[in-house]
Design a protein around this nucleic acid. Structure first.
Length: 424
RNA sequence: AGAAAGGUGUCUGAGUGGUCGAAAGAGCUACCUUGGAAAGGUAGUGUACUGGCAACGGUACCGAGGGUUCGAAUCCCUUCCUUUCUGCCA
């Protein structure tokens, strides 16, 4: 959520930023924000004055009661009852203005970083880096869902029976390689300094609001209504919310954490060839990295995250590229996002396997996550996160790119974790 | 799930209707003391919104939300959480 003060002081910057995102009606909404803000402030001043007077009178009344001047006290009581009505009315108006302002602010996405290009969709994303060799698999290369069936390592029908489409069952070496990937990723992340955490897989509405999933993405999360808890679509929510409401010291930066969780996404309305097999699931596994940073250091931190993810993909020897998302494709809460995509040779397409973002103060504002700066004033911290990595498409990439006539070769770096070097 | 007790500032903890943003201690910060440190001494030390160029003010906040009252940390209601006991259970 943007700060009103920021919108007030940087209206042009905000409008330019929203234009990059193709955000419709930006000018109207920003105008509404400014009006609501002004109304709110005016009302608050009026309310504060009324309450101040009421407080003053109450003290006088107390004095009169003590000294036994009941009549004088009763006279003042009448005044205060008038003030009370007035302040009640003002309070309601203040609430209305505040809520209106809040709703408007919730509807405005983050302002993109200066390096982000304007654009409408993923077609406008910039390819900024690529690495690795695309294997020559010949004509008999199979997509991963056929490989999964051939070697009996992932059973989509079985998951269908138990839960529904998008909930696969991993079997035998399929299950084992999943566990290997999780352990490998976590080891890699902790070696890079991230503290490993295990967090709840369900979160309350406060948490989901603070990281920006609510109210924006309400329909995309599974909701356990009886207890009003949401199944997490990403570990970003519980991990980032560990720091909700904190007032940090500068010396506590940087805060870095990593965690493995399953992720649950309703993905309502998705269908077609692009969602086959592991390409899009309702439940999948992901290892996440999260950082809380000083604003001066957050872009350096984002670079470090990008380098870290590169390193993993190099070790896995998968051909990949990095995209800088354009304004229109950047998520609601992010200022700058790099997507990592692995090339699936058998499907002849790129699969997104990681996304690393800097949210600047957008989440911190909702989280009330601040630090004391050198002047002793509190300031919002910057939050960042990235997948390191999301399992299904990494697995799809491995299955497809590492297939041979004798079976699927296991990437060298995973062999110690798997205990086998071939799926056949 | 049932019963009881409780939720106060960074922490411990006092406070049962007005003078309480809140005692006291600890911690932290600065200074004094010291060759340096410890100990000791002095002072300072919540957050948010808001007015003002500033100096300096105002309002709100004692888990959260309502209510009673001229006035609530203190009384009432609802709700969440914690602890203990009972129940259930990996």
């Amino acid at each position: 959520m943007l700060q009103v003060q920021f919108i007030r002081d940087n209206k042009e910057t905000v409008l330019e930023g929203l234009a990059k995102r193709n955000f419709v009606n930006a000018e109207i909404i920003v105008e509404q924000v400014l009006t609501a803000d002004e109304d709110r402030r005016k009302t608050q001043v009026e309310l504060d004055d009324t309450l101040a007077e009421s407080n003053k009178l109450s003290k006088e009344i107390g004095g009169f009661f003590k000294s036994g001047e009941i009549q004088k006290a009763n006279l003042l009581k009448e005044k205060t009852s008038q003030l009370k009505e007035k302040s009640k009315e003002l309070g309601e108006r203040l609430n209305n203005f505040s809520e209106a302002l809040q709703t408007l602010l919730y509807s405005i996405p983050n302002i993109p970083h200066s390096s982000v290009k304007a654009g409408k969709s993923d077609e406008d994303n910039e390819n900024i880096f690529s690495e690795g060799t695309i294997p020559d698999l010949g004509e008999n290369a199979l997509p991963h869902w056929e490989l999964a069936k051939k070697f009996d390592i992932i059973d989509f029908e079985l998951g269908n029976k138990i839960a529904g489409a998008g909930f696969p069952v991993y079997k035998g070496k399929g299950a084992r390689i999943q566990r290997a990937l999780i352990n490998y990723f976590l080891d890699k992340n902790t070696k890079a300094g991230y503290t490993e955490v295990q967090v709840p897989h369900l979160v309350n509405p406060d948490s989901a609001t603070a990281t920006g999933q609510l109210p924006d993405k309400d329909g995309q999360m599974y909701h356990a209504k009886i207890d009003d808890l949401y199944l997490i679509p990403t570990a970003e929510i519980p991990i980032t919310n560990m720091y909700r409401g904190n007032l940090l010291k500068e010396s506590e930066f940087p805060i870095t954490a990593t965690g493995y969780t399953p992720c649950f996404r309703r993905e309502a309305g998705s269908y077609g060839a692009h969602v086959r097999g592991l390409n899009r699931l309702h439940q999948f596994d992901k290892v996440e990295i999260v950082r809380i940073e000083h604003p001066d250091n957050s872009y350096q931190a984002l670079n470090e995250m990008v380098e870290h993810i590169k390193d993993i993909l190099r070790e896995l020897k998968l051909p990949y590229r990095i995209l800088r998302l354009c304004g229109g494709d950047t998520g609601f809460t992010a200022a700058l996002t790099f997507d990592f995509e692995v090339f699936s040779t058998a499907q002849d397409r790129w699969l997104e396997i990681s996304s690393a973002s800097n949210f600047e103060t957008f989440q911190a504002n909702r989280l009330k996550l601040r630090f004391k700066n050198k002047e002793g004033k509190s300031e919002f911290a910057h939050t960042l996160n990235g997948s390191s990595l999301a399992l299904p498409r990494v697995l799809a990439g491995i299955l497809e790119n590492y297939q041979t006539e004798d079976g699927i070769k296991v990437p060298d770096v995973l062999v110690p974790y798997c205990g086998f070097d071939m799926i056949n």
